[in-house]
Amino acid sequence: MKRQCIRVNKKKGEQVRKVLMEMGVLDTSMRIGSDEQYIYIPLTSDVDLAELSLEDIQVTEHEFKLHEKPATLENILGRTPSYEIIGNIALLESDETDLERTADALLKVQPHIRTVLAALSPVEGEFRTRRFTFVKGENTTQTVHKEYGCKYVIDMEKAYFTPRLGTERSRILEQIKDGQTVVDMFAGVGPFSILIGKNRTSCRVVAIDKNPEAVKFLRHNIELNAVTNVEAVEGDAKEEVQRYIGVADHIIMNLPHTAQEFLDTAMVVSKPGTVIHYYDITPESDLYSTSLAHIESAASKAGFAIEPIATRIVRSYSPHQFNVCIEVRITG
């Protein structure tokens, strides 16, 4: 479309563009035009050439093209869909309705995405897995996720993983000191254990999980990340901890909803000074107090007391419910 503009020799084009920008008359919705000798800078209003104090410029008209709007989900869909990215898979949440249109937009906007899946269920069952439906792209549930310098091979239908805890995993790492022993009671494919093992090479990490598929990926990821101080243990934590009585300096209990059932188990590997990182899903009306009471009760039965260290909301889980972390130190 035609617009009033400044015609200027190419050698002075950038100088004039900056002046017009400072004056507030540069039309940034249009792409600057050019030919062999001149560039044409679109204007939003009339300009007094005397104000520019430059020679060899002229006000004229020129045919301009509009700047293309960046391809964003908001521009394409008119809204921001609910999704998360795991490796090169985009996972749409269960409340997403227009699956195919949303998947097309994701594949267009984010070229590194190769697969779009939609969640059919929450985390469920003994092995904490989810069910998915394939929407667009490559039909697979397996990917490689990179996080804080580590790589994790994941099959999302066989073992639970969420990137939303990446910051939380890094936060726990900062609390681990060289030479300590960490027991990860529900390790999954290894995001807590491997991050700690790779960055605290003098530590011992015991990574336990009951899901044989998760442990298969855990062992693969240990090799993939070249860590030698993480021990992968397949089995029920309630039974396996009997091999590690009183060894833990840190215990990670990332099993929201049912971690309470394993508090007595955690006390088996505890000793005075052990720090327990306990994760739960709690209502906003009772974020911490009931969970703290459960931890205190289990500690008391084992002859321990607890010293609360920190409480925090990790993320929103559902309306009026939150994924929280409660950290306590075991005292004698």
Rank of each mutant, 00 (worst) to 15 (best):
F192V: 05
Q242Y: 13
V206H: 01
L43V: 06
K65S: 13
T265C: 08
H294I: 08
K158N: 04
T115V: 05
V205H: 03
R329M: 15
T258M: 14
I306G: 08
D104G: 03
N229P: 00
P256W: 08
V205D: 00
I176C: 03
E213Q: 08
A248N: 13
G303P: 15
L218G: 02
G188I: 02
R7S: 07
D184H: 03
K177I: 08
V230P: 00
T129P: 00
T331Y: 02
F322A: 11
R200Q: 03
L26G: 00
M1E: 05
E147W: 11
G188F: 02
D264E: 14
A237M: 10
R164T: 00
Q110I: 13
V324C: 08
A298S: 15
I251L: 10
Q4F: 00
A293Q: 11
S270H: 11
N254Y: 15
R204S: 14
K69T: 14
P212W: 01
D35C: 11
D104V: 04
E307S: 15
R79V: 12
T282M: 13
K108R: 06
N199I: 12
A105R: 05
Y279N: 12
S121Y: 01
L195R: 15
C150K: 12
T290N: 07
T80R: 13
P111Y: 03
R3H: 12
E93A: 03
S300I: 05
H145R: 02
N323L: 12
T282D: 02
P272M: 09
Y279H: 15
I32T: 06
H257Y: 13
T60E: 09
G246N: 15
A232L: 05
H257W: 08
Q37M: 14
V25G: 05
L120K: 15
D280R: 11
A103N: 03
R17D: 00
T282W: 04
G246I: 10
A90H: 07
G137K: 04
H67T: 09
L54V: 14
F304L: 02
M21R: 15
A259F: 12
H62C: 11
T72Q: 13
L224H: 02
I276F: 09
Y160M: 01
K12D: 14
D48T: 06
N211M: 01
S193A: 13
H112M: 10
E168G: 01
H250I: 05
H62Q: 10
E22N: 14
A159V: 04
T181H: 07
L218P: 00
R204F: 09
I194A: 01
E124I: 10
I6A: 00
N75L: 14
P70M: 15
S297K: 13
E51N: 11
L195Y: 06
D56N: 14
R131F: 06
R79A: 09
Q37C: 07
I154C: 03
L218F: 01
G78D: 07
R312N: 12
S82N: 06
E36W: 05
L52I: 10
I41C: 02
S170N: 11
V123M: 09
L49Q: 08
T102E: 11
V25M: 04
G33W: 01
I176A: 04
V206C: 03
E61Y: 11
L117K: 05
V328W: 04
Y40E: 07
A302D: 15
R130F: 04
I252M: 07
R3G: 08
D209R: 04
Y279V: 09
